[in-house]
């Protein structure tokens, strides 16, 4: 446990040092840059690209979370049950749309830039959160529901005080999935001129420079790793506090 913790800490320090001073790593990447091409991407600052990448993922994940949790709450209330099968179908159908296709189809409508990417990430993020929120909200033991009703809680109080806290670890697992998938998918956004780390990868692809592809890909992969770990820690802490419900 402590060894793997130290390993992760070392990786995090490595990533931050690289972002702060990429030129220091020039010798590491130099062997991958053919024909005397630069080994480190300098057209834009890697820190700015990373921040813009993370901001885009965060915005899309947040929006997807609000919408899917909202819908999951609506369709699990007695008045909204008739929408449940349909909302499930729509979220599933959304997932079969390839993200590149969503990007490509959004460009004619919204133009180049961050908007098509945000839309694709948002649509792609809906299903994992929605599925998990549904599982969380529908798997609360009947005895707990009865007890809450018995002490005289209203529907709204039960939702805020009982159902959501109990479902939170499972919902968080869905958000983690969405964030990690979005982090990788956001790189594709750079094909339609969104500012993400994909810019570095594309620069490498078009100029045949493996060093660029490698550093762009590595930064994204490490970010995904840390986000995954961070959420996992949060989930275990929460499910320990609420005493039970195992994250999916």
């Amino acid at each position: 446990m402590s060894v793997s913790f130290l390993l992760r800490l070392a990786l995090l320090v490595l990533l931050l040092t690289f972002l702060a001073n990429p030129q220091a790593f020039e010798p590491v990447f130099a062997p991958f840059a053919a024909n005397g091409a630069p080994a480190i991407y300098t057209q834009s600052s890697l820190v700015a690209l990373t921040l813009s990448h993370l901001a885009m993922v965060a915005a899309a994940t947040l929006a997807a979370t609000i919408v899917s949790v909202g819908f999951a709450i609506l369709v699990t209330r007695p008045s909204g049950r008739e929408f449940l099968p349909l909302s499930r179908s729509i979220a599933n159908i959304g997932q079969t749309f390839p993200p590149v296709a969503v990007l490509a189809l959004a460009v004619p409508v919204f133009g180049f830039g961050p908007i098509p990417t945000l839309i694709a990430l948002f649509l792609y993020g809906l299903l994992p959160v929605f599925e998990n929120a549904l599982t969380g909200l529908t798997s609360i033991p009947a005895s707990v529901q009865e007890a809450a009703r018995g002490v005289g809680m209203t529907g709204g109080q039960r939702l805020v005080g009982v159902e959501l806290p109990l479902a939170l670890p499972i919902i968080l697992a869905g958000i983690r999935l969405t964030a990690v998938i979005s982090l990788g998918t956001a790189t594709i956004g750079s094909t339609v001129a969104a500012r993400t780390l994909g810019e570095v990868i594309i620069a490498g692809l078009t100029s045949n420079n493996t060093a660029f592809v490698l550093q762009g890909g590595l930064i994204v992969a490490m970010l995904a790793l840390f986000i995954h770990e961070g959420f996992a820690l949060l989930e275990t802490a929460l499910s320990r506090r609420t005493g039970g419900a195992q994250p999916a």
Partner: peptide, 26 residues
């Protein structure tokens, strides 16, 4: 792991779980 399981619930689930609704629909 989680990814595989979640994504695996598939379209069929959406189409299969019609049971809830007809009770709710008057």
């Amino acid at each position: 792991m989680g990814r595989a399981q979640t994504a695996g619930t598939g379209l069929a689930v959406g189409m299969r779980t019609g049971t809830y609704t007809d009770a709710g629909r008057k």
